[in-house]
Design a protein around this nucleic acid. Structure first.
Lengths: 123, 123
DNA sequence: CGCTAATTGAGAATTGATTCTCAATCGGAA
DNA sequence: TTCCGATTGAGAATCAATTCTCAATTAGCG
């Protein structure tokens, strides 16, 4: 997409720098350093466009509100810290899901979410 | 819990009979046959109590609104049909999730959701 | 039966996430 | 620069799920 404004480029840059799935609220707070006075509507508008162009992915998992992360094309899953509620990307995938399907069912995608305690909270 | 009223026992009985995760709305419609005039608030109140006592489990996965199912103590995961939006239980679990964890992270639980087409919709 | 506390149904209210409205401001082509 | 369409911020509005309010009804002890 064209990054026509300072706000839009701040939002995308900050999202890329955070390097993990974040909520629109976290993103607003982080990007406000770059763009003082940034409004939440602008964050939502930017995220919506970025999701539509495939540059950003919206992640919805039970227990936490929706998060967004840069789409980097690598298949991965997620970890949710039950202590700080932060979400992390997990590399790799155990596979073997197709064998769980009952007869006649077909799989188009799958998701794995692991809940637990992150390194910071465990310390 | 004590099933003090006709409504409460209808709700639990119907939920058990449906045999798969259902939405409060589906449950309301199904249980209305047993208890005419049943209100949605009553369904939500009953589900809330049943979840608190551990008899029922609330399932939240991306793409569909919250579903509820009887807690039967068997570890399993879920299938969501992208065509009819219905949710099904999948027996078994591939395991091997712990090896996805980064150092210092601990796992307390996990969830697997498979998206695709169910047998009815594939036919 | 008679009574009181608990439960119910209907609709209003709340909640959290997200979108809309609109006047003010910005970006960039001429 | 000048101008116009696009973008922005603030707050109102929406949306779906769920909870609350309250008067009417029900359960079941005495």
């Amino acid at each position: 997409m064209h990054l026509k404004t300072q706000q839009q480029s701040s939002i995308l840059r900050v999202l890329a720098h955070l390097g993990r799935p974040v909520t629109p609220q976290e993103l607003l707070e982080a990007a406000s350093a770059d763009s003082p006075g940034l409004g939440q509507a602008t964050v939502y508008r930017a995220l919506k466009r970025l999701v539509e162009t495939g540059e950003v992915r919206k992640i919805e998992v039970a227990g936490v509100s929706p998060h967004y992360e840069m789409e980097r094309g690598n298949h991965h899953h997620f970890f949710v810290c039950e202590s700080c509620q932060k979400m992390f990307e997990l590399d790799g995938c155990p596979g073997g899901f197709r064998k769980l399907l009952p007869p006649g069912f077909t799989m188009s995608s799958h998701e794995v979410i692991i809940y637990g305690t992150c390194q910071s909270c465990a310390a």
